[in-house]
């Protein structure tokens, strides 16, 4: 019973196929939590309802125009909320998934199988990576129908293009945090604070212009702000793929550093756990 070494291409395609197994597994798990699924949507809609009424107090002049036309606050904030889905998945879901695998004891079973640790890292968020763009789109459609927001639907493509760079960036940060959780068993509190600070110093809920002067340059350089600018230009203005290229290009270096840091940190955390013999502890 001797195993034959597979060609590299076969190995890569085999690993990619495994990602679909993660998607199927998480879909089944999600279906087992029907109430959580419904409550996720209700809370998101509830959030929009709040911002809808807040928006009535906000003067449209304080919000930047996109594509030459003035946008309402609800349109402005809806794109911000949609983007927070990516943050939630990238930062929160990857961490909670690692923690859950530890608690279930399945992390060891996964790592004992001939599956690359990078596949495991990607697999833990694969379902959400597919679900989030769908969720974002449905969310924007609902906001449009329920609150009369005007979105440029042709801008969905360029917005998704931005996510191609922003998603890996956030995922990499999530994996770095997951490595911290693997090592320290906790860390979501610190991460929650960091995520909050990161989100505040961006343009998710309000324009960067209303932030204190000293914070504005930081917020401008914040990758969330960069991604939001690109997405709002596409979804609220008339920006096409070529127009969002600068934002996309600005995000790429962040994404590369983040992904590499994530992979390195996670592998280092696994090596440490094996060395200490604590991989199975939770």
């Amino acid at each position: 019973m001797t195993l034959i070494a597979l060609p590299r291409f076969t190995l890569v395609s085999s690993e990619i196929r495994k990602l679909m197994a993660f998607v199927r597994r998480d879909l089944l798990e999600m279906l087992s939590y029907r109430l959580a699924f419904v409550s996720d949507w209700l809370s998101m809609i509830g959030q929009v309802v709040v911002f809808f009424f807040v928006g009535k107090m906000v003067s449209p002049e304080t919000i930047a125009s996109y594509g030459g036309s003035q946008v309402s606050y609800i349109e402005f904030v809806a794109v911000g909320i949609a983007l927070t889905s990516v943050l939630d998945v990238g930062l929160g879901k990857v961490i909670s998934a690692v923690r859950q695998e530890q608690l279930y004891g399945t992390l060891e079973a996964l790592l004992a199988s001939p599956t690359a640790s990078t596949t495991v890292q990607l697999g833990l968020a694969a379902y959400d990576m597919l679900y989030v763009p769908i969720r974002m789109t449905i969310f924007l459609v609902l906001v449009s129908v329920l609150f009369g927001a005007n979105f440029t639907w042709t801008g969905l493509g360029p917005a998704a293009f931005i996510l191609l760079a922003f998603g890996p960036l956030v995922w990499g940060l999530g994996v770095v945090s997951a490595a911290g959780v693997l090592t320290f068993r906790k860390g979501t509190l610190v991460l929650g604070f960091a995520g909050f600070a990161f989100a505040v110093a961006s343009g998710i809920y309000f324009p960067v212009g209303v932030l204190p002067t000293w914070l504005q340059p930081i917020a401008e350089a914040n990758p969330i702000t960069v991604a939001l600018d690109g997405m709002r230009s596409a979804l609220l203005g008339t920006a096409g793929y070529r127009d969002v290229l600068p934002e996309f290009a600005a995000l790429i270096p962040f994404a590369i550093v983040s992904v590499v840091a994530g992979i390195v940190a996670f592998r280092a955390a696994l090596r440490r756990e094996r060395r200490l013999g604590t991989l199975g502890l939770y």
Partner: peptide, 11 residues
């Protein structure tokens, strides 16, 4: 493994 914890409990 010797323990019970090694499967996804919700599926």
């Amino acid at each position: 493994p010797s323990g019970d914890r090694s499967f996804y409990l919700r599926i």
